[in-house]
C-alpha cells in the first residue's frame, strides 16, 4: 500500500510510525518522503504529510 498521512506534529509522526512498526497487519513500512501540508483545503491543521509504503496482509 502507498499511504499519505497528514500529521499535526513530529510527535504524532513518531507515534504513528512506531504503531505501524508494531502492527501485525502492516509490515515492511518505509517512509518515502515528508513534505509540508497544503494550506488550502487543510481543515484538520496538519503540519506535514508523510508518504510511506507498507505491506498490508491479513490472514
Amino acid at each position: 500500500m502507498k499511504l499519505s498521512v497528514g500529521v499535526t506534529n513530529d510527535e504524532a509522526e513518531l507515534k504513528f510510525e512506531r504503531a505501524l512498526e508494531e502492527s501485525k497487519e502492516f509490515t515492511e513500512f518505509k517512509v518515502e518522503g515528508v513534505h509540508p501540508a497544503n494550506p488550502s483545503g487543510n481543515q484538520s491543521g496538519d503540519q506535514k504529510v508523510v508518504q510511506l509504503t507498507t505491506v498490508y496482509s491479513r490472514i
Binding site: S4, V5, F16, D46
Partner: peptide
C-alpha cells in the same frame, strides 16, 4: 486496521491511499 494504529492526532488526515 489502520484506525487501530493511527494515533488521534493524525487520525483524520489519512488523505490518500493507493
Amino acid at each position: 486496521d489502520l484506525e487501530h494504529i493511527l494515533p488521534e492526532v493524525c487520525a483524520s488526515s489519512a488523505s490518500s491511499l493507493s
